[in-house]
Design a protein around this nucleic acid. Structure first.
Lengths: 239, 239
DNA sequence: GTCTATACCACGATAGAC
DNA sequence: GTCTATCGTGGTATAGAC
């Protein structure tokens, strides 16, 4: 079933290897996006890719590592785009401080581009990413933690300049809320049934979705710092 | 290994059934909280409960239904408390409109109570709930959608009064963001490594966590409505 | 080095004896 | 109600073909 290598010269090993590896990667990405990590079996992936079951473990070591490879292939370029875009915004602003909206757009735009540039799957990859971001599996959390570390650090300093009044730890929390809301929104296309008034046209339009999320998050970021014990007080009042 | 029924009279069937059923439920809750749904096997649960593997399927039908039973036992009372608290706030306010903070506290306080009232597991149940809220499995999404429907509808009308300027569909989106940020925050205790400056004391303190989330969400809810195409414009500018 | 065939063990589920 | 036995499927490891 596997294609026989036609050209044996000029790195024939690499060529044949990349072909099989890429086919597994493509099939895995599509199936992971559709069914999620746990519900997608290696047998389904390798069958769809037209390769042997053991080939997946040979090239990627395990199902978990295959999943990480699927994510890295698109996540790494996207986060680099985010940092580059932020840097270009800062350069264009000269000495001026960037607004929260502008910084947020540096996070959103590369995600939107990713959703569009890829004719196939691109729209759904963000959902896969959002689900992964909320996945309880430690190997996923650790992997994403490592992947996002540099980008988050870069954006935190940008937000710190835009929000000088905000305490450092408060900003860390709010960045956490931002990342959570973003990933959750991207992941939760079908949770909208919970909210009702569900409009399929809107839900499929990531641009419209993010254009609603952006002002929500910007306002949250710019809110005054927490007054200590405010919830505690409410808790006491309610008995 | 299973306890032999000592009293055969007075509904012996129900007594023995509830005992086994409860033991499975308790063991399942603890293990689901610790390892998540997929990573927890029925064999582990039934072994911990000291019952036979088949007993779980007999009493609950499937692993999925067992999981739903675990969630329902605590979720149903919590959502009822939320609605009751909101109603008492409205009654206390007379004809006055409730503030967003007040409405949000009606959502948060029952969650905090749940986290505390139960000596065992209570602190971690909210994390299990948050993870379930973001789980891609359809049976979980459908279940929670049904569980939350009444409460969400109730709170939407409350927010609609507090935010009369906000279009209906915009409010629906923001409620979605609120629920997402809340559940994600409760679920993501260990994602904080991503943000760094991690302080274990704070992360374990749900009250402090929610006291930081509340003003963030309130500000987002009260933000001016989306100007159509704002993100689209930014997207064009960035090329 | 790549790829295949195959075996192994754990899982969820179920039928049937008690 | 409970238990044993068993089925089909899952991820994984490995021996050996090319």
């Amino acid at each position: 079933m596997s294609p026989t290598p036609q050209v044996k010269r000029l790195q024939p090993v690499d060529v044949s290897a990349q072909t099989t590896k890429t086919r597994i990667l493509d099939a895995a990405e599509e199936l992971f996006m559709e069914h999620g990590f746990e519900a997608t079996s290696l047998r389904l992936i390798t069958t769809a890719a037209g390769v042997n079951l053991a080939a997946a473990n040979y090239h990627f070591g395990s199902k978990e590592e295959l999943f990480q490879a699927v994510l890295t292939r698109r996540l790494d370029p996207m986060n680099r785009q985010r940092m580059d875009l932020l840097e270009s915004f800062e350069a264009a602003a000269g000495g001026h401080t960037l607004s929260c909206d502008k910084i947020l757009s540096a996070m959103f735009i590369p995600a939107l581009k990713l959703a569009r540039d890829k004719e196939t799957g691109g729209q759904n990859f963000l959902r896969l990413l959002g689900r992964a971001y909320a996945d309880p599996a430690p190997f996923i959390r650790d992997f994403l933690s490592q992947q996002y570390h540099e980008m988050i650090a870069r954006f935190r300093t940008a937000f710190a300049k835009a929000l000088p009044h905000l305490p450092k730890d408060e900003l860390s929390w709010r960045l956490h809320f931002v990342m959570g809301a973003l990933s959750y929104t991207l992941a939760g296309s079908d949770v909208l049934k919970m909210i009702a008034q569900y409009q399929p046209d809107e839900a499929d339009n990531d641009e419209l979705l993010l254009s609603r999320l952006a002002p929500f998050l910007a306002a949250g970021l710019m809110a005054p710092a927490t007054t200590s014990g405010s919830v505690h007080q409410m808790f006491q009042e309610a008995g």
